[in-house]
């Protein structure tokens, strides 16, 4: 079980959260200009990182706000938590 630190509420049990998938995927500004392959890449393709993964979680049974988490997908250790619009700690993306 994960203990997740909500940036607003503090550390809570994983049961209070919903998983929102890979973080920092930006919806293309002009979908009508994309090829089918580019649109499919946005819709379906994912990094599916083995290692430290930037992902979204929602504190659904708490403050109901979204935030980002850096989590190791092998050890499941949470490396960092940061708010939407913030850059991941330690650079990157």
């Amino acid at each position: 079980m994960l203990k997740i630190e909500c940036p607003w509420c503090g550390e809570r049990d994983q049961e209070e959260f919903q998983y929102g998938g890979e973080a920092h995927i930006v919806r293309p500004e002009r979908p009508d200009t994309l090829t089918d392959e580019q649109w499919a890449d946005y819709l379906f393709n994912r990094a599916n990182t083995k290692g430290v993964h930037a992902e979204q979680w929602c504190h659904g049974a708490g403050c109901r706000r979204w935030f980002n988490v850096l989590r190791d997908t092998v050890s499941y250790v949470i490396v960092a938590v940061y708010r939407p619009g913030e850059n991941p700690p330690g650079g990157g993306e």
Binding site: Q18, Y19, G21, K50, E55, T73
Partner: peptide
């Protein structure tokens, strides 16, 4: 629900 390669779950 989360992605993982750890061969264990919640």
């Amino acid at each position: 629900a989360y992605t993982g390669y750890g061969q264990r779950g919640s």
